[in-house]
Design a protein around this nucleic acid. Sequence first.
DNA 1: TGCGACGCTATAACACTGTTATGTTTTGTC
DNA 2: GACAAAACATAACAGTGTTATAGCGTCGCA
Lengths: 192, 192
Amino acid sequence: MADAKLKILEAASKLFFEGGTQALSVRAISKQAGVSTIGIYSHFDGKQGILDALYIRGFELVAEAMTLEEEYDLSSETVAVLVRRYLKNAIENEAYYKLIFGDHSAEYQPSNEAKDVAISAFSILVKHVTKLFPNNTDQQNREIAIEIWSITHGFVSLRHHVYPLLGDVNNWEDKAVDAAQTFFEALVAKRS
Amino acid sequence: MADAKLKILEAASKLFFEGGTQALSVRAISKQAGVSTIGIYSHFDGKQGILDALYIRGFELVAEAMTLEEEYDLSSETVAVLVRRYLKNAIENEAYYKLIFGDHSAEYQPSNEAKDVAISAFSILVKHVTKLFPNNTDQQNREIAIEIWSITHGFVSLRHHVYPLLGDVNNWEDKAVDAAQTFFEALVAKRS
DNA sequence: TGCGACGCTATAACACTGTTATGTTTTGTC
DNA sequence: GACAAAACATAACAGTGTTATAGCGTCGCA
C-alpha cells in the first residue's frame, strides 16, 4: 500500500475510533495524516471511500467475534459465548458498530466490496446454526441466524438509543445473554 | 401557535417525511415554509429544535401504535397484534423511526421534553406486561418490556441495515411476529 | 536520452451547511 | 404614543465535501 494511503487510513481509523463519524472531516483526516486533502480523493474515492474502509473493518470485527476456533456443538452455552463476544465487540468498537447500524444514507452507501464482507460475516453465523440443524435448507438456517441476530442486536441498539433515556439498567450483558439463550432454547424446542 | 412557527413545523415535517433528515437543511425548510431561516432559530432553537419536534413526534407515533383501545388480556395473540402495529409504524414512518434509532449525536441530542415523551411511550409497553405479571416488581416488568422491544426492534433494524446487503427475505413481518411470539411464550413459560 | 502520459500532490475555489450578526419591522404593554 | 421585546430579512461567518488548477515525479516508448 502506498505510504500516503496508509497514513490516511491510519489517521482516519484513529480519529474514528476516538470520536466516531463526526470526527471524520476530510480536513481533520488529512491534517492527522500529514498530507493534503486531495489524497483522500485519489486513494479513497473521497470521504465515501474512507467510510467504506471503516464499514468493512466493522464487519470484519463482527466476523472475528463470531468465529470460534475450537470444535463445538451449538448449544445454549455456545450461544451465550457467541452473544457475549458480539456484545463485547459492539461496546468496544462502538464507532464501527454505529457506522453499520446508523443512518448515514445521506453520506455513505456500502460498496459491493463492503456488501461482500457483510455477507461473509453473516455466513459465519449461519454456519453455526447449520451445525445444529444440518437437515434444514440454507434458507431456513439463514432465517434462524437472522432471528438470533435480531434479538442480540436489539439489545445493543436499545442500549445505544433508549437506555440513555430510561436511566441505568443493571447487568445489561447478562440480561441480553439470558434473553438470547431463552429465545434459542425456544427455537430448538419448537423444531424438535 | 404562531403562524410562522406552524408553517415551519409543517414544512419540516413534509420534507422529513419525504426525504429523511438529509432533506432538512434550514434553507430548504425556510423556503418550503415561505419564511427566512431566522424563524428556525427564534421559534425552534435552531435545527436542533426542529429535530427535537420530529423526534417527539416519532415517539408519539410509537405510543399510538402501542396503545390498545379495547380491554385485553396479554396473550401471545395480543403480542402479535402489538408487534404488527409496531412494525407497521416502523415501516410507514421510516424517517421518524430512523431519527430515533439513528446515529445523530453530532447534530442532535434529545431534549428533556423528548426524553419524557420516550419514557411515556415505553411505559405503555410496561403497562401491557404488568397486566400479565401483576405480582412482578416494576423493574422486572420493565426488563421484560425491554426484551420484547429488543427482538422487535432488532427485526426492524436488520431490515433497515442488513437486508439490503443480504437480498430479499420474504414474509419479514410474519417472521418477526412469529419470533416475538416464540420469545414471549418462552418468557411466560420460564416464569410459570 | 528526450518527450509525453499518467498519477500524485498542494492549494485555492466552489457550493453547500448551521449559525450568528446586523439592522429593520412588528407586536405588546403601559 | 413611546418604549421594549420579539420577530424578521439579509448578509456574513466558519465549517463541510468536492472539484479545479497547476506543478512535480515517474514510467514507458520512440
